[in-house]
């Protein structure tokens, strides 16, 4: 596993070029290009603001928007990662290079996008006078988030080489995962619900996405919800998934050339 990382370092130029390629292709033939990375979250915030007001939903908008932007990064990375190997079959079967660069480049391209969204988000939060005093935690949460997404992306990209059903399965998994994670609701909804025993609450945070999104809210909104006690559980789960993803990917990568 260590030598695999060395390989990636040696081919880091390829990684950067592929990240650039993924970003470039996303905005090919569009007049505004990169600005869409900024416009999309801006429109999203605008639309939620208008509709929540019109519908008279009483919802904490900064909490909701933070959750959705963080979730979008994961969902888009995982959707892209399905095609990391399968969609680059011509590269995989015709050239030798560390295959792990392909899913990594998909995730990193989305990280770039996510960071641009975060700029919009933070500007919005400043306007909303959110409590940004814990913002120093943001990079830590980001690292856990990216580790988690990378781990799952490695699993999905590998699985899709061997079973093309993975594509269909993943959209179901993502939908379920979206509701199991406090994206559109606060973690307190589960943690302070007396109907759920303590074991369920621990399980809730064993879903590492829960910890990640709670972490972002802690960092960007000064959120001091009840979930902070469970954050470490999510960190451990994220890193375990990353290791599992690396392990599975590295074990299977030799067979990619034959399967494609």
């Amino acid at each position: 596993m260590f030598s695999a990382l060395q390989d990636v370092v040696r081919h880091r130029e390829l990684l950067w070029i592929l990240v650039g390629r993924n970003l470039k292709i996303r905005y090919k033939n569009s007049a505004l290009g990169f600005f869409w990375s900024l416009l999309a979250p801006l429109f999203m915030i605008g639309i939620y603001t208008v509709f929540l007001k019109l519908m008279k939903f009483s919802m904490n908008l900064p909490m909701l928007v933070t959750g959705i932007i963080a979730w979008q990064f994961a969902a888009m990375s995982l959707g892209d990662s399905l095609h990391a190997i399968v969609g680059n079959a011509n590269l995989v079967t015709k050239s030798a290079f560390p295959r792990i660069i392909l899913p990594l480049s998909m995730v990193l391209a989305n990280v770039v996008n996510f960071l641009l969204s975060c700029i919009v988000l933070i500007v919005y939060l400043v306007v909303e006078r959110a409590d940004l005093s814990h913002a120093a935690w943001f990079p830590v949460v980001l690292i856990v988030h990216v580790s988690l997404v990378t781990g799952v992306a490695l699993l999905f990209s590998t699985a899709n080489v061997f079973f093309r059903d993975t594509e269909h399965l993943v959209s179901m998994i993502l939908l379920a995962w979206f509701f199991l994670t406090p994206v559109i609701y606060p973690d307190a909804l589960v943690l302070e619900n007396p109907a759920f025993p303590a074991a369920v609450q621990a399980l809730f945070f064993a879903n590492p996405m829960t910890g990640v999104i709670t972490g972002y809210r802690m960092a960007l909104l000064g959120w001091a919800g009840p979930g902070t006690a469970y954050l470490l559980l999510s960190v451990v789960a994220s890193l375990s998934i990353l290791l599992l993803g690396l392990f599975v990917f590295l074990c299977c990568q030799d067979r990619f050339g034959d399967e494609l």
Binding site: R21, I25, N90, T93, K94, S95, A96
Partner: peptide, 15 residues
Amino acid sequence: ISSLLELGAGFHPEL
């Protein structure tokens, strides 16, 4: 090693 298993194999049409 440089391999030409297929000319322009790794080219991406949009680039």
